[in-house]
Amino acid sequence: METKLDKKRMENVRRSCGLLNGIEKDDIEVTLRSFSKWNLDVLVKEDGNQEKWWFTGLYGSPYLRDQNLVWNLLKRLSQ
């Protein structure tokens, strides 16, 4: 979902959530794998847990002309 908050208000939200550098906390390691104007793909490892998990955020463009690009990106990310 797109945010309508300006930069200063988003900084306040980030700090109140305890996030460093925007997306990670002290006890969570976040490794950026890829990003584009349509996606954010990260690998997440929590302290005390040996398992890692993926988070992929995807923005589906409202424009029909972008439909194939976004589907191809999603297919590639699923591999």
Rank of each mutant, 00 (worst) to 15 (best):
R9V: 05
S78H: 14
T56N: 10
D6W: 06
N39F: 04
Y63K: 03
D6Q: 12
D66F: 01
L77Q: 10
Y59K: 04
G60K: 08
D26H: 07
W71Q: 05
L77Y: 05
P62N: 06
V13G: 14
E29G: 12
L5I: 01
M1K: 10
K37V: 00
L74I: 00
S34M: 10
T31Y: 08
R14Y: 14
L43Y: 10
R14P: 05
T3R: 09
E24A: 09
E51W: 05
L5P: 05
G60C: 02
L77N: 04
L58P: 00
F55E: 03
E51P: 01
K37W: 04
T3H: 10
E29R: 15
N49I: 09
I23V: 11
K52G: 08
V44L: 08
R76A: 03
D6G: 11
R76Y: 02
R14I: 15
V42M: 15
S34L: 07
R15C: 11
R15T: 08
W71M: 07
S36F: 02
R15P: 11
M1Y: 02
R33G: 08
K25L: 12
V13H: 15
L69I: 08
S16F: 09
W38V: 07
F55L: 14
T56R: 10
C17P: 10
R9D: 12
L43G: 07
L73W: 01
E29C: 14
T31D: 15
D41N: 06
K37I: 00
S78L: 03
D41M: 12
Q79Y: 07
N12G: 08
L64Q: 15
Q79H: 08
Q79G: 15
L40T: 04
L74P: 01
L19I: 02
R14W: 12
E11T: 00
E46K: 14
E51R: 15
S16E: 15
